[in-house]
């Protein structure tokens, strides 16, 4: 069984690098994207098992990305949203648009791994 492919969309390079390191170390194949447009491009050529996205990104926000995946691409790929703007409104909107999970920053990489594992098991 091959590695699960993850798409990580995070504009903060430090955090992205850290998470990338941890996720790869956790046995996942990770594609990094630093903005929303790049994520769109990736998605046209690459179909991940799970998408991890920040909300606030250049060009395309995390919310728009959910909407794009669910409505335009009609994909049921699990989406985990990570954001420092963990207010109720964002969380509710994200779930309404079709996000599978929401993690507020600061995030614990260990926790993220557990959540990814859980979502992948659902699929």
């Amino acid at each position: 069984m091959g590695k699960k492919r993850l798409l990580l969309a995070e504009d903060d390079e430090l955090l992205a690098g850290l998470l990338n390191f941890r996720l790869e170390k956790g046995g996942y194949e990770v594609k990094l994207s630093s903005d929303g447009r790049e994520v769109k491009e990736h998605l046209t050529t690459y179909s991940p098992d799970l998408i991890i996205s920040d909300i606030m990104m250049p060009y395309f926000s995390g919310m728009e990305l959910i909407d794009y995946v669910r409505k335009e691409l009609n994909l049921s790929t699990p989406i985990i949203i990570i954001s420092s703007a963990g207010n109720e409104e964002n969380v509710l909107t994200a779930f309404e648009l079709g996000a599978n999970d929401f993690i507020s920053k600061p995030i614990s990489p260990s926790e993220l791994l557990v959540r990814i594992e859980r979502e992948l098991q659902k699929v």
């Binding site: 955090l15 600061p106 614990s108 990489p109 260990s110």
Partner: peptide
């Protein structure tokens, strides 16, 4: 210091 803000738990 920057990473400290983004990570929590054991990593922090």
């Amino acid at each position: 210091l920057d990473l400290r803000k983004d990570v929590s738990g054991d990593t922090q």
